[in-house]
Design a protein around this nucleic acid. Sequence first.
DNA 1: AACGGCACCTGGTCGC
DNA 2: TGCGACCAGGTGCCGT
Length: 271
Amino acid sequence: MPELPEVETIRRGLAPLVEGEQITQLIVREKRFRIPIDKSIQNACFKPIQKVDRRGKYLLLKTSDDAGLMVHLGMSGRFYLLDPAIPPKKHDHVDLQLSNGKILRFHDPRRFGLMLWIEKQLDQHALLNHLGPEPFSEPFSVDYFARCLKTSKRPIKLAIMDAELVVGVGNIYANEALFQAGIRPERPAHSLTLKEIQRLHQAILDVLAQAIEQGGTTLKDFANAEGKPGYFQQKLFVYGRENLDCLKCSKLLKSLRMQNRATVYCVGCQG
DNA sequence: AACGGCACCTGGTCGC
DNA sequence: TGCGACCAGGTGCCGT
């Protein structure tokens, strides 16, 4: 389901509702995730959640600077904040009972997600440590971006989707950013000119910022903690529009598959 | 060492 | 209505 804008939307929705609360009971109905849930998750109980943080597409419910729940929504993960006594439905795998009486319910049909209790050095966890810079952080500079691309032969679309280069750019926003920058997705990364690199850098920031502003992209069932959908899908220029007319130049949008992911571009706009 | 391929899952949709 | 094929917003690991 989520790329960075969706996770950030969830984080912003969740923060005011769960910060300061503690988990009074943690019910695990299904523990088979990308990494299985083990008993240590019960250690998350009875400690106030100080902060809801995000690193890449990981959500961090921190009970201290060092410890907390690390959550990933995978492709299909979702949170619901519910009044108690609403019975769980299919794929409602974990309930966090909060001290304010609400239930934070984790739903994930495909179970590509994860929920782990990390006791120490949460920020340095192996799953976070190898991640590249946050797109809106100072280390993700044009200079850094240019250096990364200079030596890489792989297609530019795959480069910008690589979380070791920059976090948060998934399939939707990779397609959109390349369209906005006017660059074909198959171009070898090192073939981009400095001008193109600057345009793409800006396009990544613009696309992500706009998507966050719109509350993310709702394709099937994405919704924030309050159950509201996102609206960025109304601003998609290429993703999901293969064989339709380009909204800018009216040429037919072409599609191909890269790493088995749908890739859509405009032969007119993306020189 | 960088990079492509694949596996991990369930559910929805489409064509027959 | 049923069935199989294929598709879906992610990512870590494996082999080359």
